[in-house]
C-alpha cells in the first residue's frame, strides 16, 4: 500500500471530524430535549400550584374546601412509610447481597436466584400490592397500617438494594479481599472491616434510588387500602392519645395513613377544578422530595468515595 499524502490524511481527518460534529450536535439536542421536558413539567406544576405553596399547605389536613386543604398527613405519612421501608429493606438487601457475593457457592441454584432477583425488579408494583394484601394485611393481621405499606415498598425495592449491593461489592478489587484473608481474617471479618464499608457508597446510592422510586408508588399502597381522606397524624410516642392512655414507642407503625401520591391522586379525581391547584402544588412538593433524596445520595457518595482509593 502506498503511503498517504498529506492531503489524503487531511481529508480523512476532516471526514472523521464532520461525523464528530454531527454526533455531538445530536447528543446535545437529545440531552436538551430531555431537560426541557423535565423543566416544563416541574415548571408547569410550580406555576399552577404556586398560590397554594405556603406554610399553611404543609400544616393543614385534607379538607372538603380546596382552599383549606393541605398535605400534612400525606407528607408525614410518606416520610414514616419511607422510614419503615428503609429499615426493612436495607438490612435484608445488604445481607442478601453480601451473602450472594461473598459466601454463596457458584452453582445452578445461585444462578437461578440471581436471574430471579433481576426479574423481581421488573414485577409490576401492583402485584406487590396484591401480595401484601394477602400476607401482611390479612395473614399477619397488620391491617391497613404504615407497617404494611413500609413492608410492601420494602419488598418492591429489595431487588434494587440487592443488585446495587452486589455491584458495589464486585467493584472492590480481589487484592483487597486477598490482603485481608492473608493476615488470617475470617470471611465475616473481611466483610465487616472491608467489603461492607467499601461497598457502602454504592449501597447507599442504590437504597436512595430505591426509596425515591418507592416514595412515588401509588398502586400498591392503594391496593393495601391506604386512606384517601385522613385528618389525623399517627400517634407520637409517649404522648397522650386519649384520656390517660399514652402512645407506645411503636404505636405509630399500626396507624392508618395516607401518602403524597395518594393525596395527589385523590385531588385530581375531584370534580372541583380548585383541587387541581392543590394537586399541582403537592406534585411539586413530591418532586422536590425525590430530587432532594437524589441530591443526598450524590453528596453521600461523593463524601464517602473520597477516602476509598485502590
Amino acid at each position: 500500500m502506498q503511503p498517504m499524502t498529506t492531503e489524503q490524511i487531511r481529508s480523512l481527518i476532516a471526514k472523521g471530524k464532520a461525523k464528530d460534529t454531527i454526533f455531538q450536535a445530536l447528543g446535545i439536542f437529545c440531552l436538551g430535549l430531555g431537560l426541557l421536558v423535565i423543566f416544563l413539567l416541574v415548571g408547569d406544576m410550580l406555576l399552577r400550584g404556586m398560590e397554594r405553596l405556603n406554610l399553611e399547605f404543609f400544616t393543614s389536613f385534607a379538607s372538603r374546601r380546596a382552599g383549606q386543604a393541605g398535605i400534612l398527613s400525606a407528607w408525614v405519612g410518606s416520610l414514616l412509610v419511607m422510614l419503615v421501608t428503609g429499615l426493612a429493606a436495607v438490612p435484608l438487601g445488604v445481607a442478601a447481597g453480601v451473602y450472594l457475593e461473598e459466601y454463596a457457592k457458584r452453582n445452578w441454584i445461585t444462578d437461578i436466584i440471581e436471574i430471579n432477583i433481576t426479574n423481581l425488579a421488573a414485577v409490576p408494583s401492583i402485584v406487590y400490592g396484591l401480595l401484601s394484601l394477602g400476607i401482611f394485611v390479612y395473614a399477619f393481621g397488620f391491617g391497613q397500617s404504615i407497617l404494611t405499606a413500609g413492608l410492601t415498598l420494602a419488598l418492591l425495592i429489595l431487588p434494587i438494594v440487592i443488585v446495587s449491593t452486589r455491584e458495589a461489592i464486585r467493584a472492590i478489587p480481589a487484592m483487597i479481599r486477598e490482603g485481608s484473608m492473608a493476615v488470617g481474617a475470617t470471611r465475616w471479618q473481611t466483610c465487616r472491616y472491608h467489603i461492607i464499608p467499601y461497598a457502602m457508597p454504592g449501597i447507599l446510592t442504590g437504597v436512595i434510588i430505591g426509596l425515591a422510586r418507592a416514595i412515588g408508588e401509588t398502586a400498591p399502597i392503594i391496593t393495601i387500602g391506604a386512606l384517601t381522606f385522613i385528618a389525623f397524624l399517627p400517634p407520637v410516642p409517649f404522648t397522650e392519645m386519649s384520656e390517660g392512655v399514652s402512645a407506645g414507642l411503636f404505636d405509630w407503625v399500626m396507624s392508618p395513613f395516607t401518602v403524597m401520591p395518594i393525596q395527589i391522586f385523590n385531588w385530581t379525581s375531584r370534580p372541583d377544578p380548585a383541587f387541581e391547584i392543590n394537586a399541582a402544588a403537592a406534585g411539586f412538593v413530591l418532586m422536590v422530595m425525590v430530587l432532594s433524596m437524589n441530591a443526598i445520595a450524590i453528596y453521600l457518595r461523593y463524601k464517602m468515595r473520597k477516602n476509598i482509593k485502590w
Binding site: P173, M175, I176, E178, G179, S180, M181, A182, V183, G184, A185, T186, Y193, H194, Y198, N307, I308, K309, W310
Partner: peptide, 19 residues
C-alpha cells in the same frame, strides 16, 4: 486455611493497602 494464614504472612505483587 485461616489457621495457616495466621501463621504464614504474605506480601503481594502489587501493593494492596486497605483504604
Amino acid at each position: 486455611p485461616i489457621e495457616v494464614r495466621m501463621r504464614i504472612g504474605m506480601v503481594f505483587q502489587k501493593p494492596n493497602p486497605f483504604p
